[in-house]
Amino acid sequence: MKAILFDRFGGTEVLREADIEVPQPGPGQVRVRVKASGVNGLDGKIRSGMLEAVYPTTFPSVPGGELAGVVDAVGEGVRDVQVGDEVLGWADTGSYAEYALATIVAPKPADLEWQDAAALPVASETAERVLNLLGVTAGETVLMHGAAGGVGTLAVQLATARGARVIGTAGPANQAYLTSLGATATVYGEGLVERVRELAPDGVDAVFDLAGKGALEDSISLRGGTERIVTIADFRARQLGITFAQGPAQAAPERLAALAQDAAAGKLVTTVTSYPLDQAATAQQVSDAGHVRGKLVLTVA
């Protein structure tokens, strides 16, 4: 099968297309003929070697942690998924490939496009996990740094669905986009504390940092301390006494299935930019640079 892999750490130039063996499902696993694979910021950090202490890499390595596709084989003990089922979920093996293995999948609604399905697993799990860590409830104001990306797009909507108000930061080009999702938009950068205080005179109740670009000090000023601030992107968090939310604690297929139904019905907006599999390096370059609107996805012919 065709797959994207890397044999050493480095920039996107280390990514290459290769023919490798089709993986075989073990107990509890299904094999998925991949139709679309999500591209996440984590993929580039692993490729660069930045997270080797957290995510040890065995070379050659195929990137990708989420997928949407058709089940074409099932391992021993699998009862609730059958060959031919259309699914989305979290990949056990790299998903930048024609085939990947998965243990946790949910049914894909017929009306949900493949690329939109692949945009959901990691982003929705991350968004809901952090909102739960922050304890966001109705009537509260949540500040989200870098809210226009794949996780932010869903986090804004999921927070507002709880009855919270979201103040979202993004670049000038994404102000209208955040507004369309239900957020109160403002630009990041110098003067942010003053802008947010003007928008929320009574203060913000929680902060979700998705950007990792030096906004934690401003967050502490706005919160008057480090309580109820969570980042998924700034590795300085611990030295500042802030919670770093790392990795899925427990992926829930039932919740993913419900969100997929909402996306298919138009109740949950997904914004996707797609690249063919052989342009994975380009997609990761865009991801590494930041300022992505919505989700980047690889499509597999």
Score class of each variant (00 low, 15 high):
Val70Met: 04
Gly149Pro: 00
Leu222Tyr: 15
Ser221Trp: 02
Leu199Asp: 05
Leu199Arg: 06
Leu131Arg: 06
Glu113Lys: 14
Pro172His: 10
Thr137Val: 04
Gly150Glu: 00
Glu190Arg: 07
Gly168Pro: 09
Arg16Glu: 09
Val142Gly: 07
Ala265Lys: 15
Arg33Thr: 05
Val122Asp: 06
Val269Met: 13
Ala301Leu: 10
Phe59Ala: 01
Ser95Val: 07
Lys45Met: 11
Phe208Gln: 13
Ala173Asn: 14
Lys213Arg: 13
Met50Pro: 00
Leu256Gln: 12
Gln285Tyr: 00
Gly163Lys: 09
Ala118Phe: 12
Tyr177Thr: 01
Tyr177Leu: 08
Val70Trp: 06
Gly266Met: 02
Val272Arg: 08
Gly163Ser: 02
Ala147Pro: 04
Ala260Gln: 00
Arg47Ser: 02
Val87Glu: 07
Ala301Ile: 03
Val297Thr: 09
Gly49Ile: 00
Ala110Lys: 13
Met50Glu: 09
Val14Asn: 05
Thr137Lys: 15
Ala200Gly: 03
Ser180Thr: 03
Ala258Val: 01
Phe208Asp: 03
Asp85Asn: 14
Gly38Lys: 05
Thr273Arg: 14
Asp218Lys: 03
Ile4Tyr: 07
Val62Thr: 15
Asp85Leu: 04
Ala200Asn: 14
Met1Tyr: 08
Phe244Ala: 04
Ile46Phe: 02
Ser61Gly: 01
Glu217Ile: 05
Thr273Ile: 04
Pro107Ala: 11
Pro63Gln: 03
Gln285Val: 11
Asp209Asn: 06
Ala176Asn: 06
Ala245Ile: 02
Gly10Asn: 08
Gln261Val: 11
Leu133His: 13
Asp7Trp: 04
Glu254Thr: 13
Gly266Asn: 06
Thr243His: 11
Tyr177Arg: 10
Thr153Glu: 11
Gly49Ser: 05
Asp7Met: 09
Thr271Asp: 14
Ile20His: 06
Glu21Tyr: 03
Val269Trp: 04
Arg16Phe: 03
Ile242Cys: 08
Leu15Gly: 10
Gly189Ser: 12
Arg31His: 01
Thr93Arg: 00
Asp80Glu: 13
Ala159Tyr: 04
Ser124Trp: 05
Gly168Ser: 12
Leu192Lys: 10
Leu154Pro: 10
Arg162Tyr: 11
Ala148Thr: 08
Thr58Gly: 09
Thr93Lys: 03
Asp278Ile: 07
Gln29Val: 11
Phe235Thr: 13
Ala280Asn: 09
Ala211Cys: 04
Ile20Leu: 15
Tyr188Trp: 13
Ala301Trp: 02
Asp262Ala: 12
Ser219Ile: 04
Glu66Asn: 04
Val230Glu: 08
Val39Thr: 02
Pro276Ala: 12
Gly225Tyr: 05
Gln246Cys: 08
Thr160Ile: 11
Thr153Asn: 14
Val71Lys: 05
